[in-house]
Design a protein around this nucleic acid. Sequence first.
DNA 1: AAAGCGGGGAA
DNA 2: TTCCCAGCTTT
Length: 361
Amino acid sequence: MKRAGKAFFTDNLLTWNREINTRTMPWKGEKDPYRIWLSEIILQQTRVEQGWPYYERFIQAYPTVAHLAQAHDDEVFRLWQGLGYYARCRNMLAAAREIATRYHGVFPNTYDAILALKGIGAYTAAAIASFAYGLPHAVLDGNVYRVLARYFGVQTPSDSTAGKKEFTQLAGELLDKKQAGPYNQAIMDFGAVVCKPQAPECPTCPLSTQCLAYNTDRVDQLPVKTKKLVIRQRHFYYIILIYNNQVYIRKRAGKDIWQNLHEFILVETPGPVTLAELQASEAFRHTLPGVQFEVEGLSEQYKQQLTHQTIFARFLTLKGKGRAPKLEGYQLVPRSLLNDYAFPKTIVSYLEQQTTGLTLF
DNA sequence: AAAGCGGGGAA
DNA sequence: TTCCCAGCTTT
């Protein structure tokens, strides 16, 4: 497709990058493919400021892909705790181990081989290929969609198949193939610093004279997105059943949220219930068959907003009487060792409240 | 093609 | 509240 202002776009973007851009990040200019890969996985759907400390901790704990490949799953998940999208962590471990075995610890250096690794899609493959090896692949992330949609006035929804194709084509044409790495870095920095989602810096933007959105006063309407989110509400009651300073936990599995993170005994109800209703419920009696206990307390309601779900959680502390029962799927661990396990944010928040003693039942 | 997957910062 | 972030995988 013919579009106006392509040369102007690339030239002025690179000039802005050279003369004005002062953005610095630990992985910027990095040439070690392992470090680039690690940063890219951490930054998928994640703000730079949020991922930054995790990157530092991971590099510290696992300086090479061999270190990461040899690490224990639970230890790595504990380090990932709080970052979200935990499938990234699982895929990252799988990829590290494939690099260690199949590639004998040497990071693959072709776009297709990189793309074939677990957890790496078109964006991440292009980023690694261009940053580490200078290969001519254009990145297409949220920043690039926004910058291109505005500058060229692309109205095709960026989250549609047609839009993806169109933006991919356009991004590839704009790429400076002789300096793919710096170009990719520049367009993402530009999107993050100048062409921001809200309140972009149009008045000082070096591309504004040719920006279609700016010149038709439609900056705040681009890019177009279509998909509407359906958010489900769920009610979790976590039972902290204590025997002799030990509690039951399990690792979450299956297709639900928080895979590979840990949790207390979970009773989920269709809606909010009182303590009496909870104890009388089929789910509760099925989960704790014949268990004798004393109620120590019920916490306030914790709310956590996920992308597709709202989680309402309360924590019910029970002091077990008699011998600790076997509970299917759960293990009994000392409370003092809870720090060794990765938990979802809601549970971490609850545990912190207990530790700091801000909440008395 | 659409759904599902976290957590946090900013307006 | 709503939006969206250096997206990918599964259905």
